[in-house]
Design a protein around this nucleic acid. Structure first.
Length: 558
RNA sequence: UGGGCCGUCGCCAAGCGGUAAGGCCCCGGAUUUUGAUUCCGGUAUACCCAGGUUCGAAUCCUGGCGGCCCAGCCA
């Protein structure tokens, strides 16, 4: 897949202009800063594509991976591992630049003492709830903490004792001294450090006090000499604080924060809290459940890195609120796989067909293309036999004239093989169809029948030369376009029909040999991805996305 | 009734004073042994609304309206 260049957007415009004006001596440094408290989702992919993408587009641009691990209560190595795997899988490389905010705990502490020395920070003994009261509201200014005017010496002493573990958790915080009357809540003396006796996944028990995001992020950016710190819109109100902190300190570099709107996608949720709730509740099988919007879920579902990158390119970068249609994501996968997925035939819901015009035990090997539009992908062998399976929905005893598949007495083309005509329908005592009896037209292999037109083509698999396995079909996790607006526990709103497991599906034997690919087009059905639950002789496939289906629209209007 | 941000086709999204790009969706039609793909063609006299400036405004000004975010010792 040839990748189209990302179109310009307001952030790329700013960067191009900064580069041209040599704002950072012509340097470009970005960073992708996930908190390791959950798995990455497609919203993160947008940020990854932006940060790594913009760096790759410029000659000396670099993008760091930085784990924003300042809150040990929620973080875990499981997440740092999965995040790295996902970023790599998406096709991006941080080279030797993998960092952790926890790498900076010592310098961060030093800068905090510097703030104290400058009279810009103080130790506050207010409890969390008292602090909330003192903060005021959106429309009323806050009041100064009674501890706001402690001496530098006392603050320094107290802060050092906070570090030394002399005070209980939550009893004191270090706060910035800014403006309790600011209309921006973030500027009302925000907390910089809190006491938490929690083991950190990297620093262990070395620290009892941990910096807050607002304090650590800008300094981390500056220490890494990040030039453009790209984040989502909800941090817009934090920018004055980000700048304030950088302004007080003597740092090697001066990064600039720029915000863009986060991604929302129809029929799913994106918050890690809600995704975690889905996992914990058991409503999905895990973070990589193919219905999840996580990178690992999409990967298991059958999405390719190329398709996700293309999606991120298509949605663009802006500041407007958005909710992207699911159809766009699907389109990106289809267009990627259309070009390169090997074709095969599979029957999901088998209906037996006996071709009476063929002798018992008849078998004919047919050599057919792996991809009809791409000869270079080679050939595969399929087996035409007296007994075959077709899709149950490809046969009807009677049907409207728009129905182009097999009907009693009618003809249809078996894809890659012959035209057959249905002679008889065999039913059980309850009237359920057991099998159908057909005859084939031997003159129709690679040739059109003479004197009549056969409009329909259906797929099939030999009943005697096939492998049996499982297919999982998926529907959206939620049936409403905006599940975030749903009341109550999100877990209760999961679409019970979001997964359908089909057993007894039949596949071409050649499928077992085509091991160089994990993604296939099952002709007329969609793109399917071999799941890791497959075992030898019993494949399991997930349907990543169906093919566009004009018939379903016609059928609905009938 | 504090502050910040946003409002261009059903959904994304260009546009940066000179007379509305593109993609997705949708609708026609052609080709087709995948009702797929591909290919042609169609789809905003209109840019949240109302005034104003200008020869000329989606773009500038004023005033409205609507939406999102912020009162964690989360990020």
């Amino acid at each position: 897949m040839t990748e189209a260049p990302s179109p310009a957007d307001f952030i790329r415009d700013i960067i191009a202009s900064d580069l041209e004006n040599r704002v950072n001596n012509g340097r470009l440094q970005t960073r992708f800063p996930p908190e390791p408290n959950g798995y990455l989702h497609i919203g993160h992919a947008k940020s990854i594509c932006l940060n790594f993408g913009v760096a790759a587009e410029n000659p000396d641009g670099k993008c760091n991976l930085r784990f924003d691990d300042t809150n040990p209560e929620k973080e875990d190595v499981e997440y740092v591992d999965s995040i790295q795997e996902d970023v790599r899988w998406l096709g991006f490389d941080w080279e030797e630049r993998k960092f952790y905010a926890s790498d900076y705990f010592e310098p961060l502490y030093g800068y905090a003492e510097e703030l104290i020395l400058k009279g810009k920070a103080y130790v506050c003994d207010l409890s969390a709830s008292e602090m909330r009261e003192y903060r005021g509201t959106l429309t009323e200014p806050g009041r100064a903490s009674p501890y706001q005017n402690r001496s530098v010496e006392e603050n320094l002493d107290l802060f050092r004792r906070m570090r030394a573990g002399e005070f209980p958790d939550g009893s004191r915080v270090l706060r910035a001294r800014i403006d309790m009357a600011s209309p921006n809540m973030n500027m009302r003396d925000p907390a910089l450090y809190r006491i938490r006796r929690v083991e950190h996944h990297r620093t262990g028990n070395a620290w009892l006090i941990y910096p807050t995001y607002d304090y650590a992020h800008g300094i981390s950016d500056a220490l890494e000499c990040v030039t453009h710190s790209l984040c989502t819109l909800e941090f817009e109100d934090h920018r004055p604080l980000y700048d304030w902190i950088l302004d007080q300190l003597d740092l090697p570099c001066r990064p600039r924060q720029i915000e863009f709107s986060r991604l929302s996608l129809e029929y799913t949720v994106m918050s890690k809290r809600k995704l975690n709730a889905l996992v914990q509740s058991g409503r999905v099988s895990g973070w990589d459940d193919p219905r999840m919007p996580t990178i690992s879920g999409l990967r298991r579902r059958g999405y390719t890195p190329e398709s996700i990158r293309e999606f991120c390119r298509c949605i663009g970068i802006s500041k407007s609120p958005n909710r992207v249609e699911h159809a766009l994501l699907e389109n990106c996968l289809r267009s990627d796989l259309e070009a390169r997925a090997p074709r095969t035939m599979a029957v999901l819901r088998p209906l037996k067909v006996v071709i009476d015009s063929l002798p018992e035990g008849y078998e004919e090997s047919l050599t057919v293309p792996v991809h009809p539009q791409n000869e270079a992908m080679g050939k595969r062998t399929i087996h035409f036999t007296r007994e075959i399976f077709i899709e149950q929905e490809d046969f009807r005893e009677s049907a409207p004239k728009q129905y182009k598949r097999l009907v009693t007495g009618g003809e249809v083309r078996l894809r890659n093989a012959y035209v057959i005509r249905c002679r008889e329908v065999i039913k059980d005592d309850d009237g359920a169809i057991l099998e159908i009896r057909c005859e084939h037209d031997p003159a129709t292999l690679n040739a059109n029948p003479v004197g009549r037109k056969v409009g329909g083509v259906i797929h099939w698999v030999s009943a005697t030369r096939c492998v049996t396995g499982q297919v999982r079909l998926y529907a959206p996790l939620f049936i409403v376009t905006e599940p975030d607006a749903l009341k109550g526990d999100i877990v209760e709103h999961v679409n019970p029909d979001s997964i359908e497991i089909l057993t007894g599906c039949r596949f071409e034997p050649a499928l077992a040999e085509m091991t160089d690919s994990l993604s296939y087009q099952f002709e007329r059905l969609g793109y399917f991805h071999r799941d890791r639950d497959s075992i030898t002789g019993h494949p399991v496939f997930n349907r990543a996305v169906s093919l566009r289906d004009a018939w379903s629209k016609i059928a609905q209007s009938l």
